[in-house]
Design a protein around this nucleic acid. Sequence first.
DNA 1: CCCTGCCTGCTG
DNA 2: CAGCAGGCAGGG
Length: 279
Amino acid sequence: MPELPEVETIRRVLEPQLKNQTIQGVTIHHPQVIAYPEPDNFCRLVGGQSIHHLSRRGKFLSIHLTDGDRIILHLRMTGCLLITPADFAVAKHTHLIFHLGNGQELRFTDTRRFGRFWLLKNGEKDTITGIERLGPEPFDPILTAAYLQKVLTGKRKSIKECLLDQSILAGIGNIYSDEILYRTGIYPARSANSLSTAELEALAGEIPRALSFYIEKNAISPEDYLLGGGTDYRNTPFLQVYGHAGENCPRCGSTLCRTVIGGRSSVYCPECQKQTIPS
DNA sequence: CCCTGCCTGCTG
DNA sequence: CAGCAGGCAGGG
């Protein structure tokens, strides 16, 4: 489920609670979620270490341990992290439990089991998670119209598919690509190399602006996060097009359309996002 | 470019 | 029952 704003929200909520905590041990209910190394080694290497801080890169979350090792995870579609008391009822589809020194637990729940964990040793070159192939962060000042111009030149695929391409920009998924294109008035199926400089400038500005807006709308206390089971994404009411096909465009009142682009469901306003290229 | 697999659950 | 779901890798 989570895209960049949700992963960042999780990082912000969990980091203060996890900082300086010791991982006393790990219980694996479903070894499939450990991509590397072997699940037994994963547990052995993590056990006894302390958590130094959490970082995010695109949709990846990293738990940095005090000796320089790092646990990296990707929540994919339905992954979820929750800090609970040890006696808290274990939710269905809980695959991994980290037992913390303060009696709390860090639990990984994932209905569809697409999410993955990796453990990289201090200094170990990351050739397996995919982080190395990510494009820049959307908040990196490198994201300008000129950067977009450079990476989109010659790209005949749609601008929506390019926004979803993690090697072009890291962290945007199906929700926020639709929201960003709506905000910038760009028809999602437009070929990426057809965008004008003005449109690229609009995108370069709106991408970080929209993502920041949705990160802030997601803000939640640790208590409410636990009550919501880690899936209470509070920015959903602020989505303008995603999930609103058939409803009225908030700007012009036209009926929002749904189509499929690059195999992904896409919602747009036929009036605010014209198919024709502005001259 | 499209297709499939990976999984379960919800909706119509 | 089919179709769909906020992701990504791999294959043709």
